[in-house]
Design a protein around this nucleic acid. Structure first.
Length: 487
RNA sequence: GGCGACGUAGCCAAGUGGUAAGGCAGAGGUCUGCAAAACCUUUAUUCAGCGGUUCAAAUCCGCUCGUCGCCUCCA
């Protein structure tokens, strides 16, 4: 089985064949750094981090480029509002972006270029576009002439006439076609600027990605990714610029992730219905957020809600509990040679886990199915453990294989990066922080209950248990004694 | 108005021609003094609706209804 992925350009799943065997160039649109990132940005980051990890796991040598767009109208506006330099704003939000991504457990891309470090590259591409007739200058601005590029709109599959009929574009008399877009903008008072052959100005949106991808990956490369909302105009325009300048295919495979929704509506800055990554990290741990994102296919919409995050945490906890069971069993020597009734099934699940996971991932990165397969193994593991497999030398090879496979899967998904016992303890500690009862009192009541149970005073012991339950304390009786945990 | 996507159990969610994964929640059972956890069993004759193609459709085609997205900055 080899990797197949959905290519926005062809609108179908295609067999993935890299341009150079064994090597992959991948460019993903980062963010415009003018504010904190929200959960929608987190999804895009997590999805492409997962893709990056899986491609590497599959044996490819991947060059992963993700840019910062650090010059743009919004950054300038914000700087003006705060009375500071655009650089101050850009640097501040580059730092918060990095921090958010690190906390979410993202691997750093191979290169993270900034648009303003590539002004020369941008100018060079624009010059070429003017030379070969794809662009024209007007009063210090430079526009791309969409009518000169026959393939324009091939990615978003529209046509110019329909787009114009909708007519929400600004009518600028200086443009040859209303759909022409800016490659270079002449400077206005109070704006940062760079020298160019067309006078002082700054790059338009879109051109920086053509410049940076070309610089680090060449004129033609394998994978370009981003959110669905970038298909038009951003990626469409990148194609026009890059193919117009280089005369060769820009990108072989276009990948686009679906949105995060709130009540079925797209989470977005303009609607104001967003939660920032740091807000959500106050409530949920990073892996819960990753798990939540990866439980859906990357192209599907994903509804964000407190309830859905809680369910994700419950699901992830189930896996971590199984991993803890596995860790405990493997940390001590086996004491029997008995074969558990389900031992054969466990061996089969252990051997099949990784191949089945790969098969799911090879089908357009189907992490939802991959996690389903993992849960399937978890159920079998729990059963055999309940049958005593953990103590038996007969089950060791299967348990070890299962453990190794889980580690590999975790490395691909960016999950299970914490020792199972520590992760569970951390969740437990979070719950305890929310309790309205001090542990001294709990301990006192547990002691009293133990006394009552010894005297067969079950009425009193049940009273204590039920009282603690109203305080979200769950009593757990074991052969070793009584413990408790927060619900 | 143009273009496009989606609609699978109480909720979330896989499944693109061969007879409905998985998670959460729920019910019954094993265990327990009673509980909890874990395990076992169970929860969609059915995939928005209606027609059509086919030996066979959640999967393909058409229509209807509903939701959302892009067309303006947006992951």
């Amino acid at each position: 089985m080899s990797l197949r992925l959905y290519n926005t350009l062809s609108a179908e799943k295609e067999l993935f064949v890299p341009r150079v065997p064994g090597k992959i160039g991948m460019y993903v649109c980062g963010v415009t750094v003018y504010d904190f990132c929200h959960v929608g940005h987190a999804r895009a980051g997590i999805v492409f981090d997962m893709i990056y990890r899986y491609l590497r796991f599959s044996g490819y040598d991947v060059t992963y480029v993700r840019n910062y767009t650090d010059i743009d109208d919004k950054i300038i506006n914000r700087a003006n509002n705060e009375g500071c330099d655009y650089r101050t704003i850009a640097d501040r939000y580059i730092a918060t972006f990095d921090d958010d991504m690190d906390r979410l457990g993202m691997l750093r891309p191979t290169v993270e270029p900034k648009a303003t470090d590539h002004i020369d590259d941008i100018i060079e591409i624009i010059s070429r576009l003017i030379e070969n007739g794809h662009a024209y200058t007007v009063e210090g601005d430079v526009y791309f002439s969409v009518e000169t590029f026959a393939d324009y709109l091939k990615l978003s599959k529209r046509n110019l006439d329909d787009m114009l009929a909708g007519a929400r574009v600004d009518l600028d008399e200086r443009k040859r076609n209303p759909m022409d877009f800016a490659l270079w903008k002449a400077t206005k008072p109070g704006e940062p600027w760079w020298e160019s052959p067309w006078g002082k100005g700054r790059p338009g949106w879109h051109i920086e990605c053509s410049a940076m991808s070309m610089r680090f990956l060449g004129p033609s490369f394998d994978i370009h990714g981003g959110g669905k909302d970038l298909v038009f105009p951003h990626h469409e325009n990148e194609i026009a610029q890059s193919e117009g300048a280089n005369g060769c295919q820009f990108v072989k495979y276009w990948l686009h992730n679906g949105f995060v929704n709130i009540n079925s509506e797209k989470m977005s800055k303009s609607l104001g219905n967003f939660f920032t990554i740091r807000e959500v990290l106050e409530i949920f741990d990073p892996e819960t957020i990753r798990f939540f994102v990866l439980q859906a296919h990357y192209r599907s919409p994903l509804d964000y809600s407190d309830q859905n995050l809680k369910e994700a945490q419950a699901g992830l906890t189930r896996i971590y509990e199984a991993l803890a069971l596995l860790d405990d069993a493997l940390s001590v020597d086996p004491v029997s040679t008995d074969t558990a009734p389900s031992a054969a099934e466990l061996a089969e699940k252990a051997a099949g886990l990784l191949p089945r996971f790969k098969e799911a991932m090879d089908d357009d990165f189907n992490t939802a199915q991959g996690l389903g397969i993992l849960f399937d193994s978890v159920r079998t593991l729990n059963r055999t453990m309940a049958e005593g497999a953990g103590k038996s030398s007969a089950s060791r090879p299967a348990l070890e294989q299962l453990k190794e496979s889980c580690v590999e899967i975790g490395n691909v998904l960016g999950l299970f990066q914490t020792k199972s016992a520590d992760w569970l303890a951390a969740r437990e500690a979070e719950k305890k922080e929310r309790l309205e009862i001090v542990s001294d009192e709990i301990e006192k009541l547990i002691t009293e209950r133990a006394e009552a149970r010894k005297n067969k005073n079950f009425k009193r012991s049940d009273e204590i248990r039920d009282y603690l339950l109203t305080k979200n304390i769950q009593i757990i009786d074991t052969a070793e004694g009584t413990s408790w945990k927060a619900k």
